[in-house]
């Protein structure tokens, strides 16, 4: 039964990707005129606080679920084993540091610090969380290069998702909204294009490592079928993003185009959340043997 651990993994991946990506976008858009980005910068700390609180709640539950999988037992029976698991297993040691990083992240989100310092702190701490996520997952079976590649994969997904959510977050009332969309959209498009290239390369790397040229495993094994669903969802997001880039972005002076863009961006966010859901399923599905 992978529904529960996959749900926890999905929430963790989504929350840390969003913090990482929005923090990165805040740094990328620092040079924009303050009147156009006022709503974005006002709403960002609240988003980070909500997401770090979610991480604080979900992380211990996800750790316990992983401990249950390792010990092949239920939550109430695994409790006495928790200190041993944290001390004696690779994943337990990674989780010990991961939980500490989540606590530091939550504190940093509530500290009254300068916007740039907060963004750098959010980005670095979620980067650390992604690294521990890579260490306690399938990537560790394949060595350090795989851990690094999986980390880059997560970071690229975070940059894309964060840029899209940031664009929506900065939308208030006109005329600020129109200024924000015109100023921020080219940066979102550039980040999205880079992310797609990185996600494609790193995704192919991971898929080849796990499946090789045994293409029948894509349809015969649960891992392969889940991967196909992820690829199909990813392809739809790319098509939508390409439509925005080729048809919508060039007409952002028109209010109708801006509305279309926001509608499409909202759809992209939902679809990316679905892709992250498939990633969480893959993280909890044994690669074919």
């Amino acid at each position: 039964m992978i529904a529960v651990p996959a749900t926890f993994a999905w929430l963790l991946i989504a929350a840390q990707s969003l913090i990482f990506g929005t923090a990165a976008f805040a740094l990328v858009t620092r040079g924009l005129a303050s009147d156009s980005s006022i709503d974005f910068r006002r709403r960002l700390p609240a988003l980070w606080r909500a997401l770090t609180l979610a991480l604080l709640v979900i992380s211990p539950l996800a750790f316990l679920e992983m401990a249950c999988e390792m010990a092949q037992t239920r939550w109430w029976r695994v409790m006495p084993l928790v200190p041993e698991i944290m001390r004696e297993t690779d994943a337990g040691r990674a989780w010990r540091w991961r939980l500490l990083a989540v606590m530091v992240l939550a504190i940093a989100a509530w500290l009254p610090i300068r916007e740039r310092t907060a963004a750098v702190a959010m980005m670095l701490l979620t980067a650390v969380l992604m690294l521990f996520g890579s260490i306690a997952g399938h990537a560790i079976d394949f060595g350090r290069l795989s851990i690094a590649i999986y980390w880059v994969h997560q970071a690229a997904a975070g940059l894309w998702l964060g840029a899209l959510v940031s664009l929506m977050l900065g939308c208030g009332a006109d005329p600020c909204q129109a200024q924000w969309i015109r100023a921020a959209t080219p940066k979102v498009a550039a980040l999205a294009a880079a992310s797609v290239a990185i996600l494609t390369a790193t995704g192919l790397f991971a898929a080849y490592q796990r499946i090789g040229w045994n293409l029948h495993l894509l349809t015969d094994a649960m891992y392969g079928r889940t991967l196909l669903w992820k690829l199909a969802s990813f392809a739809i997001v790319i098509l939508l993003a390409a439509h925005n880039r080729l048809r919508v972005i060039s007409h952002l002076d028109e209010a109708a185009s801006r509305e279309t863009l926001l509608r499409n961006v909202a759809a992209e966010i939902v679809l990316l959340a679905v892709v992250l859901g498939w990633s969480a399923m893959l993280a909890n599905t044994p690669p074919p043997h």
Partner: peptide, 21 residues
């Protein structure tokens, strides 16, 4: 640069097994 990066990343991949058998 993109082609080189993709080539490096894919070239470094070696099919392997996950889980212990």
């Amino acid at each position: 640069l993109t082609i080189l990066t993709v080539a490096f990343v894919l070239g470094a991949a070696v099919p392997a097994r996950a889980h212990s058998f």
